[in-house]
Simulated scan of single mutants.
Amino acid sequence: MSEDIQQVQPLDPGIAEEWVRKTEEPNLRAVSASRSREGDLWSISVWAMEFIRTDPLEPELRRRIANALSGVNGVTSVEEEDREVWAVTGTPTGKALVEAAAQAVDALADQLRDTL
């Protein structure tokens, strides 16, 4: 399965830096991270969270994503901002944030795939 984490040019002028995980299963495995021009605030988007709405899978994936992001070097706080978005503060790299969230998704990919 092809996938790649890369930095992309932000389309939004309020975004200083953006990283994406490109995958052949975007509804399941795509993740992105964007850093605001205002301080050390990152937004991490996990596409699968838009579609996963079953217990116990949804809360388990939420927990894994939050734990993975919290464990990234330089992260000082992690909060859920929206259904599929986490707000992260600190000085982590965008690539490390995408990798961490992607690993959380990949750990449950087979189960997630069955719900889509």
Rank of each mutant, 00 (worst) to 15 (best):
N73A: 15
A16I: 02
L41A: 10
P56M: 01
V88H: 03
P26D: 04
T115F: 06
N27C: 08
A87G: 00
V8E: 11
A104Y: 01
V20I: 14
V46L: 10
E80M: 14
G71M: 13
A107T: 03
L112K: 13
S77V: 10
G71L: 03
Q111C: 02
P10Y: 00
L116R: 05
R53H: 13
A96T: 07
L108E: 02
P10R: 06
R29L: 14
W47L: 11
E25M: 07
D12Y: 07
L112F: 13
V46H: 04
N27P: 14
G14Y: 14
Q103A: 15
V105D: 01
E17W: 00
Q7F: 00
P13K: 03
D106G: 03
E79Y: 05
Q111L: 06
G94L: 11
L112Q: 15
M49I: 01
D55M: 08
I15Q: 03
E80R: 11
S34I: 07
D110N: 12
R21I: 00
A48N: 04
E81S: 12
S36N: 03
P13F: 02
Q6P: 01
G90R: 11
V88D: 01
S36P: 10
D12M: 11
E84K: 13
L11D: 10
S70I: 00
E3Y: 13
G71E: 14
R29C: 13
S77K: 04
V78H: 06
I65G: 01
K95H: 07
E58G: 07
R37L: 08
I52E: 06
D4Y: 06
R29N: 13
Q111E: 05
V78E: 04
A101S: 02
E81G: 08
V88A: 02
V88E: 06
E24K: 11
A33C: 02
E3A: 12
A48I: 08
G74H: 07
W47T: 08
P59T: 06
M1W: 04
